[in-house]
Write a protein that binds this DNA or RNA. Structure first.
Length: 984
DNA sequence: TCCTCCCTCTTTTTT
DNA sequence: AGAGGGAGGA
């Protein structure tokens, strides 16, 4: 089929994919294994439905599970259509689509459009239960069992649930689950809201839970046309109530569904696929599928055993360097991914990479909006927006320190509660002398509260209001800047974090940039849903409100790859966050029982699928590893994960392969890349480089000076992190020419030799040297040692360079055992729900109307098909001023690492599939990219980019981290002020 | 009595 | 890194 823009979408599809794309059946279920082009197929079907079946874009809903997936999808559809029509398509995560509907139509079911979507509940037991309850949808009864399989005393939880809901309602707050639940309610009661929807498509269907299933049906209720793609083997969100049985449910409830399976795997070498299949096939109950390798055989995956997790990290890094060198840089840093079961496992790896001067980024676990300094500012903004938001106010009342402690805050909260006013009102009146608070507040404290809190915030609130008659209201950016200024925030950061405050301050400045971006992107009603005759929509025109309510849903859209100098980055990611992505080389460390399968996981099949997902991310080389002892001093012995221990020993190599010409050529073939000539490769290799994976003994128990380890004797490796190096020597090393380059292990031994020498500031590391050599090799001008080579003194680090290095325990405890805020039993009626509540519902009467005044200039109107004129375009996010993309200048953006990247339409793309020819078949994914594009790092999402992360040395403050508090971030962000109120 | 500083302990996955 | 607990100081 020729598209209007000359693209033939079928050209990049194989037979089964074509059938899926153009199926005339109302319901289509595409089930396929990893690397089979699922997403590409789904995207093509959207294009087909719009372009061929003639469905108007705004009558199409595409639901995904992550923001990044929806962004990618949007871009790809746009790419294929090539005329900007994709902006009409309602595309997003289930949560964001639900939020859009609720904002527009929620009034009908009593939801204020000013809703906030947050997750304010802490105690995980109750929280999980509530979430599960909501997530069930209509699927079945909720008998919740605890870990030991006992049925939980659900009455207490039920009570707790009621309290919780009441609290949310009073605060005009919806949690993640509510967005879905309430949207179901809305669409059930007022089906006309979706009366225009003709077709619904779902990506990663295996991850839908009950409510999402309901939602899908409701979206599609008018025409019942649904397309899903998924892979039961990749269902890894059971803990989020995803239900594989939704698949059977779909087939049952939509009889006549066209089932299509895609069998060719275009991603991985057949060796990798083979081993991955051996892993997944241990699951007896799984739905069996065919998976045909299309790629070259390649080399067997490696299962490496190391002594400790420190060694493991060192080994991974040495292997990365070895591969890079022996491939003559055909494989660069951005081709590597390290995939972890838990984000907390990244510690050693991050520090080794940092020490070696290899730039990396962490995907998952870190989110910009979770960093403490940003959380503080957000809370201030919340209080400005809604003074009666007690939770936010309580969190900032003593930040910066104003001499008011926990006990006083608690007392004030209770007093406010008793008087049925908000905390803000209480404090405000007290400071104005209108009403003496019964709680004792010292004069000094009162002065601080009044001068640095109440006054500036009241002032700002006035200035932001549009109808205050004070001239042009302040915009978001000005607001943040003034706020930061009034708070003397920079001084505060300096006082709290000492010399290391710069990176935190840089975060604040980045936040300002982000608000700017937000303003630019949100001048219009870009999240508009199609206007449906006779159904009134609420307008959502308060920018501050929209900003705040978007923070928790879109908390990762801002940190897209900020890849400062375009340097290739190694990716570290959780396995969960890696789903849907692919890399030429993948490392999976910590493959031991307790990690995979996780100690606290109760569904081992899901854990196995998790490993399967991780393994199938790899295209050419795959490494699993297992340290014999766990990281920290505890020194517990580990046990190789039973998922791999039970496989025949032939499944894995015991150590990294020798990269001789035949093996490297095969790798090149799999990656569809050009392998440099041997002469070129060897020219780039320093004479003393160990060409084999022999820096560590294959058997970790082997005695120290074993012959197999050769010159780079295992015993010579410092067991401790070598943080010390002689300054003079290193500088010297760094200034050496390429010819005089030092082999990695020799460098390491130098380090070992010098590691008792006290360290001075400002030296370069050996790894940094290596990096600069690499830079020279790449025929870029060799940077000055102090420039590209990271220095260890954090104080000299450019302020905009952040470090992810979490030396301490990177992850916050999850309050699993602490601070029982809501104890199911204690939380009987006597519990002071008032402690969380915002007594006086905020008055929204003064909602703004005239806000255009301070908006940035609107973009040119997009070209709209006249026949669609009655519809508003949906979710367009073009930078201001960027004209609508024309058909003849369709961008040909390539995605190097996102799986199922759009295949570049090209006449030379062969249409046949021949496994023997190296699999240049159709539907192959990102391999057919130009060498330049290949350098582009993997799409990064809420990832933070770190170029040459810096080390930390004892005696100094640690570099500011990005708030690894991550894992349950948003709820932390919105955590109600501690509720452990002692009641007498 | 309450605030602050210093110490210790923690470790799944996420819209 | 963050949170809880204890000691010391206003």
């Amino acid at each position: 089929m020729q598209l209007a823009n000359g693209n033939d979408i079928f050209k990049s599809l194989n037979k089964a994919q074509c059938r899926a794309v153009s199926s005339e059946a109302p319901t289509v279920a595409i089930l396929a294994g990893p690397g089979s082009g699922k997403t590409h197929t789904l995207t093509s079907r959207v294009v087909w439905l719009i372009d061929h079946a003639g469905i108007p874009p705004q009558d199409v809903i595409v639901a995904t599970f992550t923001n990044k997936a929806s962004n990618e999808m949007k871009a790809r559809i746009g790419n294929a259509l090539g005329d900007g029509r994709e902006r009409g398509v309602i595309i997003g995560t289930f949560h964001s689509i639900a939020r859009r509907y609720l904002v527009k139509y929620g009034r009908r079911i009593g939801i204020d459009p000013k809703l906030r979507s947050d997750t304010p509940l802490e105690p995980p037991v109750a929280r999980a239960w509530i979430s599960r309850r909501k997530a069930k949808g209509t699927s079945d009864e909720h008998t919740i069992r605890d870990k030991k399989g006992r049925s939980v005393e659900s009455q207490a939880l039920e009570k707790c649930f009621q309290e919780y809901q009441g609290q949310l309602e009073r605060s005009n707050l919806l949690d993640y689950d509510d967005l879905l639940v309430r949207c179901v309610e809305l669409l059930r009661t007022f089906p006309q809201c979706v009366s225009n929807i003709q077709t619904v498509l779902i990506d990663e269907y295996q991850d839908t839970n009950g409510v999402q299933y309901d939602l899908m049906k409701l979206f599609a209720q008018k025409h019942r046309r649904v397309t899903i793609v998924g892979d039961p083997d990749q269902s890894i969100y059971g803990w989020r109530s995803a239900e594989i049985k939704n698949l059977h449910r779909l087939l049952r409830e939509y009889p006549g569904t066209d089932e299509i399976s895609l069998e060719e795997n275009y991603r991985s070498s057949s060796c990798i696929l083979d081993t991955a299949l051996q892993v997944i096939q241990q699951d007896q109950e799984r739905y069996k599928k065919v998976l045909l390798p299309v790629r070259d055989k390649g080399t067997r995956p490696v299962l490496r055993k190391l002594k400790s997790s420190t060694d493991e990290a060192d080994w991974i890094v040495s292997e990365i360097k070895r591969i890079r060198l022996l491939s003559g840089n055909m494989i660069d840093f951005d081709d590597f991914a390290i995939l972890l079961r838990s984000a907390s496992l990244s510690r050693h790896i991050e520090s080794t990479l940092g020490r070696e001067g290899i730039a990396y980024r962490m995907v998952g676990g870190f989110k910009f909006y979770e960093r403490t300094e940003i959380k503080i500012i957000l809370d201030y903004m919340r209080v400005i927006h809604q003074p009666d938001n007690n939770d936010a106010f309580a969190r900032i009342i003593n930040v910066p320190k104003r001499g008011i402690g926990e006990i006083t805050i608690r007392a004030l909260l209770e007093e406010a509660e008793r008087s049925s006013i908000s905390l803000w009102q209480l404090v405000d009146k007290h400071c104005r002398g209108q009403r003496r608070a019964k709680t004792n507040i010292r004069q000094q404290t009162e002065n601080a509260l009044s001068g640095s809190l109440i006054k500036p915030l009241s002032n700002l609130r006035e200035r932001v209001r549009l109808d205050a008659g004070l001239g042009t209201p302040m915009n978001l950016v000005e607001l943040v800047q003034k706020l930061v200024h009034d708070l003397k925030f920079q001084d505060y950061l300096e006082a709290t974090y000492g010399a290391e405050y710069e990176s935190r301050w840089a975060n604040v400045q980045e936040f300002v940039t982000l608000t700017e971006e937000f303003m630019r992107q949100n001048h219009g009603d870009d999240e508009a849903l199609p206007t449906i005759d006779g159904v009134a929509q609420a307008s959502d025109d308060d920018l501050l409100a929209r900003f705040l309510s978007n923070v928790s849903l879109a908390s990762d859209k801002q940190t897209e790859e900020k890849d400062q100098e375009g340097k290739p980055l190694v990716t570290i990611s959780t396995i969960h966050a890696a789903k849907g992505l692919e890399w030429p080389v993948v490392f999976i460390p910590a493959v031991y029982n307790g990690s995979i399968p996780h100690l606290r996981a109760d569904d081992h099949n899901e854990e196995r699928r998790l490993l399967y997902v991780a393994m199938t991310r790899a295209k050419a080389l795959l490494y699993l590893s297992c340290p014999q002892y766990t990281a920290s001093g505890g020194g517990k012995t580990t046990e190789l994960s039973s998922f791999v221990d039970l496989l025949p020993s032939s499944a894995f190599l015991p150590k990294g392969p020798s990269f001789d010409r035949p093996i490297m050529s095969s790798v090149a073939k799999i990656l569809s890349r050009e392998l440099p000539l041997d002469s070129v490769i060897y020219k780039g290799i320093p004479s003393m480089t160990a060409p084999e994976d022999n820096l560590f003994p294959v058997d970790p128990n082997q005695p120290v000076n074993s012959h197999t380890t050769g010159e780079a004797s295992y015993g010579a490796w410092p067991r401790k992190r070598q943080k010390l190096q002689h300054p003079a020597k290193s500088v010297q090393v760094a200034e050496e020419s390429v010819e005089g380059w030092v082999a990695p292990y020799k460098t390491t031994m130098q380090k070992a030799a010098s590691f008792t020498v006290p360290q001075a500031a400002g030296f370069t590391t050996a790894g940094a040297h290596m990096a600069s050599v690499a830079a020279a090799e790449a025929s870029r001008p060799a940077p000055a040692p102090g420039h590209s080579a990271p220095r260890r003194t954090t104080s000299t680090r450019p302020p905009n360079q952040r470090s992810l290095l979490g030396y301490g325990y990177g992850v916050t405890n999850h309050d699993k055992t602490k601070e029982v805020v809501i104890d199911p039993r204690a939380h009987a009626p006597s519990i002071p729900k008032r402690a969380f509540s915002t007594p006086a519902p905020p008055s929204y009467a003064r909602r703004v109307a005239a806000h255009k005044e301070y908006q940035l200039p609107p973009p040119p109107a997009p070209a709209i098909d006249p026949s669609l004129a009655s519809h508003k375009l949906g979710a367009a996010k073009l930078p201001a001023g960027k004209p609508t993309v024309r058909r003849d200048e369709a961008p040909s953006k390539q995605y190097s690492c996102f799986s199922s990247s759009p295949t570049r339409p090209s006449a030379s793309t062969p249409v046949s599939v021949d496994p023997k020819d190296g699999g240049q078949g159709p539907g192959k994914e990102s391999e057919d990219i130009s060498p330049d594009d290949r350098r582009r790092p993997a799409a990064s999402f809420h990832a933070t980019t770190v170029a040459g992360s810096l080390g930390w040395r004892p005696g100094t403050k640690r570099p500011a981290s990005l708030g690894r508090s991550g894992i349950t971030p948003i709820e932390k962000l919105n955590k109600p002020y501690k509720l452990t109120i002692k009641r007498s």
